[in-house]
Design a protein around this nucleic acid. Structure first.
Lengths: 237, 237
DNA sequence: CGGCGTCTTGAGTCACCTCAATGTTCGTGG
DNA sequence: CCACGAACATTGAGGTGACTCAAGACGCCG
């Protein structure tokens, strides 16, 4: 019984609360069972824990079941550069498929649970279910577009625009996960935000203050409330 | 006869000179025939021609058979932001899979020939050939990593580092395509380079001059010769 | 030869960085 | 419960790398 029970707990994709945000979004009925066979492990992480390190061999991609992660690489100069913040329902590790080792670190921003999807199993299942194959390519395509957006932001935007866009982007993603009011609970430090946006952390702090003085947001430590969505949005452009 | 002849010309993946750089790198023998059925069209572009526009509906991804392209999106402020330069053997359009329309433009930098790989056909073929499925995910993974590299560059690097890395990266890619000596023939304007690297084009010009004064490169219009590879490399870090 | 796009070069300015000091929150152990 | 320290955040002052604006040179094509 325990074996069966474990299996059920481990693989209940159909009951997962981020099912509609995760990888197998288009699978229906019996197909979703295929995913249960793909998921090999659940991993529980505490704040600061590494899901994988740069250079680790690639086992598979990870679906975030709950919590959040940051991914960061090491620049040529040797310092950390954060490449993304990832919420529940999102997938990390896609950048490692090509050469069988992770090019970056993945670190939990809070208590986080992830599902390991071994890549060979995922490929096998994708061969059987065309819908899964499409879901996989969609997820990867989305990641490419996400990075393109960041890239466009870093290209030319001012500090104010970067912060505004960052908040709006985070807000939109939290909305899909059922956030209430216009509240954003930041899981990362000012340091991390600055690093991600290509700004000094002091600049992040100053911009938060400035946006608050303009009456667009309310900052209270790591809780941000968006007061004037439209103005903030206008400002980000 | 003409029909057969057309077909052969159109689909001769096995004889393509960028075969080993392109998508179906791991396909052998009969499998490569699968790709011939996937490729639906060859498209010839002249300098400045658009392969697709932002907003165009997604038909498939494109393999560059010869020539080069730039891809660029429009920032929130309304101006162009170049997201990548793409050489022969590379694939563009991967960012459109997810929502069936291209989020950016693709523009030929010179006379360029591309192969259209309709996505449905590619998925069908990937279902039949596990190796093709892996090749596809590898190509997408590589694109994600490429963008992460740019992202890390834009985060903190100085103008000098950006230019050095840009030249070295281009050089490495040209090497794989059989470039001679340490010569780089730029297909894009200073404007484009600056846009891509998040610099004013005057800054690009000044950095080229500065690197030349240091004796690391030789600049002659759009031809760059790398004189001191090691020093340039050291400088990029 | 003239016209135009591209590139170079210079001078002045500014947004953001760096450095430094102070304030706040929170966990830990006495 | 409070004192303490460490991590995180705010704020100020001053410096600078890259931008902007402007002028001129170069190369290309009709």
């Amino acid at each position: 019984m325990t074996g069966l029970s474990d299996l059920k707990i481990k693989t209940a994709c159909e009951n997962c609360h981020v099912r509609k945000l995760c990888l197998p979004t288009s699978l229906e009925g019996e197909e979703i069972q295929l995913m249960n066979d793909v998921v090999s492990d659940r991993i529980q992480l505490e704040k600061g824990d590494y899901l994988y390190n740069s250079g680790d061999s690639f086992k598979g991609i990870y679906a975030i079941k709950g919590g959040s992660l940051k991914t960061s690489g090491v620049t040529a100069e040797g310092d950390e550069q954060i490449t993304g913040f990832h919420l529940d329902g999102e997938i990390v590790g896609l950048d490692a498929i090509d050469d069988d080792q992770h090019p970056c670190d993945a670190i939990a921003l809070a208590s986080t649970e992830v599902c390991l999807l071994p890549f060979d199993r995922l490929c096998d299942a994708s061969g059987k279910a065309p819908n899964l194959l499409k879901d996989l390519t969609r997820v990867m395509s989305r990641e490419i577009r996400r990075e393109e957006h960041v890239l466009m932001l870093l290209g030319t935007a001012t500090a104010e625009q970067r912060i505004a866009r960052f908040l709006l982007n985070l807000y939109e993603r939290l909305q899909k996960r059922g956030a209430q009011h216009n509240q954003i609970s930041l899981q990362m430090s000012r340091q991390d935000i600055g690093n991600y946006l290509g700004l000094a952390f002091e600049t992040v702090s100053r911009q938060f203050r400035s946006l608050q003085d303009l009456g667009l947001i309310k900052v209270e430590r790591r809780n941000i409330e968006i007061i004037e969505m439209n103005k903030l949005s206008a400002l980000s452009e």
